[in-house]
Design a protein around this nucleic acid. Structure first.
Length: 183
DNA sequence: GGTAGGATGGGCT
DNA sequence: GCCCATCCTACCC
């Protein structure tokens, strides 16, 4: 299936977030359709890790689009973001939930607890994504996003989950009615 | 059905 | 030293 090109990501973050819904994240033999995302903006968004400027951790968010921003959360879990916007501008999309579409046997072996890929920390465990993917180019290579055929769907919008700053901005997007959405 | 608390470590003030 | 863009288990209706 075709890989999304870098131009796809070189747009405003909300557009990228909404259009990532329905696309498929592939890592090796495992793959999952993106069913829930959150946008973290370059301006006016205090919840974004990039809001306090360029640091060793956040520098990839300011770099060229179509790369992975992976970070450690609560000392135990990794979350995967995809960098959007033109180089020099911050902006990224957090992947919050997937619908498994390939390698489900492998995914089951990697997961404990309830749900396979219905949360940002769970989906990285399920697909085997870790800190070694920090900065990885997701327009080529082992970790990538592909455009697979998809049934029509409706996009639902809500505030983002688990944050305190800028918590009322309507920047969480998900496929309405999809059973793999978190929460 | 629900909520409360613990695990666990890097990043930043 | 405090703060997390989380998940799981235990316990209580």
């Amino acid at each position: 299936m075709p890989i999304l090109p870098r131009e796809f990501y070189a747009r405003d973050t909300v557009t990228v977030a909404r259009e990532l819904l329905g696309k498929v994240l592939v890592h090796g033999a495992t793959a999952g359709r993106i069913v829930e995302v959150e946008a973290y903006l370059s301006e006016g968004d205090l919840a974004a890790h990039s809001a306090r400027g360029i640091t060793p951790r956040t520098k990839v968010i300011f770099g060229p689009p179509g790369h992975a921003y992976v970070y450690l959360i609560y000392g135990m879990y990794r979350c995967l973001n995809i960098v959007a916007e033109a180089e020099g501008r911050a902006g990224c999309v957090l992947l919050r939930a997937l619908e498994p579409v390939a390698g489900e046997d492998v995914i089951r072996q990697r997961r404990r607890g309830k749900g396979l890929t219905n949360g940002p920390g769970k989906l990285t465990l399920a697909l085997g994504i870790g800190s070694e993917h920090y900065g990885a180019d997701i327009t080529s290579g082992e970790l990538r996003v592909e455009d697979w055929p998809v049934e029509p769907f409706e996009i639902a919008v809500s505030p983002r989950i688990g944050i305190t700053l800028s918590k009322d901005l309507p920047l969480r997007f998900y496929i309405n009615g999809n059973p793999h959405v978190s929460g």
